[in-house]
Design a protein around this nucleic acid. Structure first.
Length: 885
RNA sequence: GGGCGGAUAGCUCAGUGGCCAGAGCACCUGCCUUACACGCAGGGGGUCGCAGGUUCAAGUCCUGCUCCGCCCACCA
């Protein structure tokens, strides 16, 4: 016999013990079983830069829900956990820490810095694991991976070398985005374009032969020091004479040509543009066509080089001011305009990136993108919601080569070596011991590391053992579904699909379930720096993991951002308490239940019994349908509605009369069995969303042999669907509600019971109410219930209201305040007349009657008849009362 | 410049062309009715962004427009 349950759910006493129980029961380990269907999710590995935020709570709850659901359904369910070394992000975190001590990574040296970063990473890793466990997540911890671990490092190397051998990875000097603060090249995706209010400076370049020359407009005057031409559009009549001439580059006093190129927009500025091949991508393109020299005036630290003459050594921002001022002094600054434009900033540190020509490693994306497109074209990968397919496709169709080398210390080293003796380069799977060209032992490895996303792209198969042909890979791959937010579709999802197709020949997952970002109640981005972040662990402390999980699952909408507000969690906490208490009620009332179970399919069931079982099985069907479609909020809402509004509000209340004053022991036992059966189904069905409380309550209800976490997920049985019971129960509910509404009009307290008369116009209604007499009396707080045939005279001193198939009369202590009652009736009459008018309008339209489906027309007719009957009752009632005045 | 998403109750959101447009929260009224005041019962509250169109029937489909948000993009 379980101990008595306290009247309120206290999560602290419950959640902590069950996680250990699941570990002890080993529910998370996925043992390969050829007889069972595999189900596999690989976690989007959280970055080891810090702890989990609300986005993680959302993402991982979805994954845990799906995993638990499939596990209970009997799939061999593997959720593979792990974390990401997050190259540049983690390096920045550690560098920031060092900066607090006034140090830089160079003070430590590479080896020591990397060792320190490992420490930080390990610390965050263990915090993340702890947090996932507190959230109730059940991945297979025995398979936990890290993007820098040995196996994944081998996979990275294999992938790199293979692509190199295929000619899809190459090294070259190209213009890339350079972050002067992070001192590394970046990929295009790592640059964010922001709008900025800047200036457009008009600068005169005098003609070399003497003369006015040309005025150019620029947003970056400091780069003029590296100009090697001025370009105009070939058809621009204003400058036809100048093309082929030379002008003097002010400040540098260099002679540069005026060239014509159709990349120049004649509408912009003066139609003449300065060309700085070393510091602007468009200019570089022009320069290559015209064989112009490059002059590098900005270095990797963002400072001016010796090529910048007297501006050498200044920062690029100082140089801008100095250049402008010098031009002004020389009278060559023709004007300044306010100008709105975009600048690229580093997504990691917000520093304005500098386009620089730099030796880097690149992945040739076009041929790979083809494979990525094939994956969606052939339906191998399906996006949910479907519209993200277009976003994915358009990115791949316009893809640029991917700069994958980073001048960082934290990450996968690039497996490329140079022979210091003969300068021969080599890319290999195994560390070379000697130069293959000259045989010397003088090899130096590239100091660069890989973009962190290079290893992420391999994650779905590298974690399963690739490049080896492991059993895991064979059984679980392609994985079932990837769950992530839309903000990393390009960074990660697309690249996984590409690499999956390329290296394994198969899609890495069948479905990509895309959800939105968690925002604040005001719609702001949640961020630590803005102070708008909410710590999910704090919410777990206060309301419990189940409440947080349920609240988040209710908030999911397909691919849209969701606004978090604490009262959703409060609401979910209240729901936990409701569930706790209804279980408490059932447990208390099962104490004297017969030991042997009743087979409900053979038992004599009341209307309410058949109704709740029908509703319950419809719920199970709904959950299945919605979860299969990833409509998680709909599934959560259906559970909430069923548990609270159907099971608690109606069935349990109706059950009380059968429990407290049963007409037979059999009746009571049957109700006990229904309560237990439905509650059991509810707990199982809810478990994937609210794992802790359901485990606790299941153990309160029974002494089960296994965790609910591995119990069978309940399945809908259509045999229990009962339209008739649902309709008839609707009559009972409508009647009860009608009486309650009358009581509320008099503000009668529940303790004050009152006599009620129901005049029914069909035998079925009255028969039905007779059947549920006890329940009806208790739910409507009736002390004496009189049922009369239609046509019976209405009782005196009553409030009346129409109910389904009947009219209800509440006997009022004392006499009715006729004027109030008439007012109430007038309002109802007006409402009813509106309905009737609407129905008549429809039915009076011959086109409606002809064209609309028969059942729609029929339904409308029934509705009209019903409304007319109710109106008749109301008017009759009103006349009677008016006669009394 | 291109693309996507959103606009429904005070707030956050649901709403396969067809019951009288719903829920939660908030609000109002009455209740500690022996599971639950983290609760129960009742109630008020809507030109479904605007304008056209298709249809017997539009919150739902089509066109245009207005706001809000986001993504992509080499106009210096």
């Amino acid at each position: 016999m379980p101990e008595r349950m306290p009247p309120a759910y206290e999560r602290q006493q419950v959640e902590d013990k069950w996680y250990q129980y699941w570990l002890d029961e080993d529910i998370m380990a996925a043992e390969i079983d050829p007889d069972r269907e595999p189900f596999c999710i690989v976690i989007p590995p959280p970055n080891v830069t810090g702890t989990l935020h609300m986005g993680h709570a959302l993402d991982n709850t979805i994954q845990d829900l799906l995993t638990r659901w499939r596990r209970m359904q009997g799939y061999c369910a593997l959720w593979l956990p792990g974390t990401d070394h997050a190259g540049i992000a983690t390096q920045n975190v550690v560098e920031k820490k060092l900066a607090e001590e006034g140090k830089t990574r160079h003070d430590l040296g590479r080896e020591e810095f990397v060792a320190l970063t490992w420490e930080v990473a390990e610390e965050h890793k263990s915090q993340i694991i702890d947090q996932l466990q507190r959230l109730g997540c059940t991945p297979d911890w025995s398979r936990e991976r890290f993007t820098l671990d040995e196996g994944l490092s081998r996979a990275v190397r294999e992938a790199f070398v293979t692509l190199y051998e295929e000619g899809l990875i190459y090294r070259g000097a190209r213009m890339i985005n350079w972050c002067p603060r992070c001192s590394t090249g970046l990929s295009d995706l790592e640059v964010e374009h922001i709008d900025q209010q800047g200036h457009l400076w008009y600068i005169r370049y005098p003609a070399a032969e003497g003369g006015a020359g040309v005025v150019v407009a620029t947003t970056r005057p400091e780069t003029m020091l590296g100009d090697t031409a001025v370009a105009v559009h070939p058809d621009d009549e204003r400058y036809g004479d100048l093309i082929g001439e030379t002008v003097i580059l002010p400040l540098m006093e260099r002679e540069i040509p005026v060239i014509a190129d159709d990349l120049v927009d004649p509408e912009f500025g003066t139609g003449a543009v300065k060309v700085t091949p070393a510091h602007d991508p468009t200019d570089l393109e022009i320069a290559e066509k015209h064989h112009l020299p490059h002059v590098v005036v900005i270095d990797e630290d963002g400072n001016m080089t010796d090529e910048a003459g007297r501006f050498a050594g200044l920062s690029r921002f100082e140089a801008r001011r100095e250049v402008v001022s010098a031009l002004e002094d020389q009278g060559l600054l023709e004007g300044i305009e306010e100008h709105h434009h975009t600048v690229g900033i580093c997504t990691r540190c917000d520093t304005i990136v500098e386009p620089l020509v730099s030796e880097q490693w690149f992945v040739a994306m076009e041929p790979l993108a083809e494979e990525g497109l094939k994956a969606v074209d052939e339906g191998l990968v399906r996006f949910v919601p479907e519209r993200w397919t277009k976003v994915y496709r358009e990115w791949l169709e316009n893809i640029e080569d991917w700069c994958i080398s980073r001048q960082l210390w934290w990450g996968h080293p690039i497996p490329a070596w140079w022979c210091e003796s003969c300068n021969q380069g080599i890319v290999t799977r195994e560390d070379p011991t000697e130069c293959l060209a000259c045989g010397e032992y003088n090899m130096v490895q590239s100091p660069d590391v890989l973009d962190t996303w290079f290893s992420s792209a391999l994650w779905p198969f590298s974690t399963l053992g690739w490049p080896d042909k492991t059993e895991d890979l064979e059984y679980f791959y392609p994985t079932s579904v990837l769950v992530t937010a839309y903000d990393i579709i390009f960074f990660w999802v697309a690249r996984m699909i590409i690499d999956g197709m390329h290296f394994t020949g198969r899609q890495p997952f069948d479905v990509v379930f895309i959800h939105g970002l968690v925002r604040t109640a005001e719609g702001q981005k949640m961020s630590k720096s803005l102070g708008t972040g909410v710590d999910p662990m704090g919410l777990i402390d206060e309301y419990g993991a189940d409440a947080l999980r349920f609240a988040l699952m209710q908030l999911i909408t397909h691919g849209q951002d969701l606004r978090y507000s604490e009262d959703r969690v409060v609401g979910a906490r209240n729901f936990c308490n409701k569930l706790w208490n209804v279980t408490r009620f059932v447990v208390m009332n099962l104490e004297d239940a017969p030991a042997e179970r009743i087979d409900l399919s053979e038992a004599e069931l009341s209307l309410a019994d058949r109704w709740i079982l029908s509703r319950h099985h419809r719920l199970l069907a709904t959950i299945d349908r919605e979860l299969e479609r990833y409509n998680i909020a709909q599934a959560a809402d259906a559970l909430y509605e069923h548990i609270w509004s159907e099971f608690c509000d109606w069935y349990v209340e109706l059950a009380k009369s059968d429990l407290y004053e049963p007409e037979s022991p059999q009746r009571k036992a049957t109700v006990q069995q229904v309560l237990e059966t439905v509650l059991d189904g509810i707990l199982r069905a809810l478990h994937p969303i609210m794992p802790f409380i359901t485990e606790e309550l299941w153990h309160r209800l029974y002494e089960p042999a296994c965790p609910i976490a591995v119990a069978d997920y309940p399945e809908a049985d259509e045999a229990w669907f009962d339209d008739s019971a649902e309709e008839r129960m609707g009559t009972v509910q409508g009647t009860v509600t009608a009486i309650r509404t009358l009581r509320a009009a008099l503000t009668l307290p529940p303790s004050q019971r009152a006599p009620v008369t129901v005049i029914g116009d069909n035998a079925d209604t009255l028969g039905l109410l007779e059947n549920q007499r006890q329940g009806l009396k208790s739910l409507a707080m009736i002390d004496e219930l009189t049922l009369l045939d239609p046509g019976s005279e209405a009782p005196q001193d009553c409030l009346a209201a129409p109910a389904p198939g009947s009219q209800v009369f509440l006997h009022v202590p004392g006499s009715v305040d006729v004027s109030d009652e008439i007012q109430r009736l007038d309002k109802q009459i007006a409402e009813m007349e509106g309905h009737i008018e609407q129905s008549r309008g429809k039915l009076g339209n011959p086109q409606f009657v002809e064209n609309a489906p028969d059942d729609i027309v029929q339904r409308e007719r029934e509705r009209l008849a019903e409304s007319q009957e109710k109106l008749r009752q109301l008017q009759e009632r009103r006349e009677t009362l008016a006669g009394l005045v």
